[in-house]
C-alpha cells in the first residue's frame, strides 16, 4: 500500500515529497503499460470528439430530416453512421450521447467517491460501536435490490438529469465504503497516524489529511471500474425508458433504440455499441494498469 512510513504532521512537506516520488514511480509504471496507454488515448479521443461535437458534423444533433428516416450510412449527405428512427444524424447523436454517458459515469462516480470514501474512512477510523452501526447501515442497503432502489429514485427525481447522476452515485458508494474502511483499519495503527494523534491533531483532520490520501490507491482502481458500471446502469435504465429526456440522448438510449431494430437497421445499434464498448474496455485496461502500477507486489 502507499503510505508514508514515519512521517509526522510536523514533517508534512517531507511526507509530500516522499509521496510524490511514490506516485511518480507509479506513473512511470503505468506509462510502461501499453494497453493502459492506448486506452488513455482512446478515451482522450472520444472525450475530445464529444467536447467539440458540433464542429465535427454539419448536422445539429436535434435536426430532423423527414426524408431520411432510418437510413443506412450515407456519405453524400454526411450521415457517416446513418440516421435514426426520427431522421436525425446518428454520428452527431453518438457524440452528444458521449457527453451524457461520460458525464453520468464521471459525476456518479464522483458522488459515490465522496460519500464512500468519507463514510468508509470515518467508520474505519472511529471504529467501535460507530463502525458497527455504520456498517450495518451499509449491509441493509446492500440487501435492498439495487434496481428497485434506482427505479424508485428515478421515478421520484426523473425530471432532472443531474439528479440521475446523484441517484446513481448514491447507490454505487457501498462497495467503495467497504474498501476504504478495510484500508483505513489496516493503516490506522501505523506510526504516522499514532504520531499525529499524539501531536493532538483532531480526528477530522487526521482522516482528511492522513487517512484518505493513503487509501487512494485502491480507491482509484475501484473508480475506474465504477465508471463503466455506471454507464451500463444508465443504459439499462434507458432500456426501461427511464433515461435522459429527449432530444438529449446517451449511449444507453441509442443502444436501447438500436437493439429494437438490430436486424433491419443494424447501424443504429453497431455504432453506439462500438463507442460504448471502446470506452468500457479503455476504463478497464486503465484500471488494470493502475492496479499493477500502484501495487508494487505485483509486477
Amino acid at each position: 500500500m502507499i503510505h508514508t512510513t514515519a512521517a509526522s504532521d510536523a514533517l508534512a512537506p517531507m511526507e509530500e515529497l516522499e509521496g510524490r516520488s511514490l506516485w511518480q514511480d507509479a506513473r512511470i509504471r503505468l506509462f510502461r503499460n501499453k494497453a493502459a496507454v492506448a486506452s488513455m488515448v482512446v478515451l482522450g479521443v472520444i472525450a475530445v470528439m464529444a467536447l467539440f461535437a458540433p464542429l465535427l458534423s454539419p448536422h445539429p444533433f436535434d435536426e430532423i430530416y423527414w426524408d431520411r428516416i432510418q437510413q443506412p450510412p450515407d456519405y453524400a449527405n454526411a450521415h457517416w453512421f446513418g440516421t435514426d428512427g426520427n431522421g436525425r444524424d446518428m454520428f452527431i447523436r453518438i457524440l452528444y450521447g458521449a457527453r451524457v454517458s461520460l458525464a453520468v459515469g464521471l459525476l456518479a462516480t464522483t458522488v459515490s467517491l465522496v460519500i464512500g470514501v468519507t463514510y468508509g474512512a470515518v467508520a474505519g477510523f472511529v471504529g467501535g460501536r460507530t463502525d458497527n452501526v455504520m456498517m450495518r447501515i451499509v449491509d441493509v442497503m446492500y440487501s435492498l435490490p439495487f434496481m428497485f432502489f434506482v427505479i424508485m429514485l428515478m421515478v421520484v427525481f426523473g425530471r432532472n438529469i443531474f439528479l440521475i447522476f446523484v441517484a446513481l452515485g448514491a447507490v454505487e458508494w457501498l462497495t467503495m465504503a467497504r474498501i476504504v474502511r478495510g484500508q483505513t483499519i489496516s493503516i490506522k495503527r501505523k506510526e504516522f497516524i499514532e504520531a499525529a494523534r499524539a501531536g493532538g491533531v483532531s480526528n477530522f483532520k487526521i482522516i482528511f489529511r492522513h487517512v484518505i490520501p493513503n487509501v487512494l490507491g485502491p480507491v482509484i482502481v475501484y473508480m475506474t471500474l465504477t465508471v463503466p458500471q455506471v454507464i451500463l446502469t444508465e443504459s439499462f435504465l434507458s432500456f426501461l425508458g427511464l433515461g435522459v429526456q429527449e432530444p438529449l440522448t446517451s449511449w444507453g438510449v441509442l443502444i436501447a433504440e438500436g437493439a429494437k431494430v438490430m436486424e433491419p437497421a443494424p447501424w443504429m445499434l453497431i455504432y453506439p455499441a462500438i463507442f460504448l464498448a471502446l470506452t468500457l474496455f479503455a476504463f478497464n485496461f486503465i484500471g488494470d494498469g493502475l492496479r499493477d502500477a500502484l501495487d508494487p507486489k505485483d509486477r
Partner: peptide
C-alpha cells in the same frame, strides 16, 4: 478481451441477438 465483451454488451442487446 472476450470476457470484456461479456461485460460491455448489455443483456438487452445480447438476449435478442442470441434469439435472432
Amino acid at each position: 478481451t472476450v470476457s470484456m465483451i461479456g461485460i460491455a454488451v448489455p443483456n438487452f442487446v445480447m438476449a435478442p441477438f442470441l434469439s435472432l
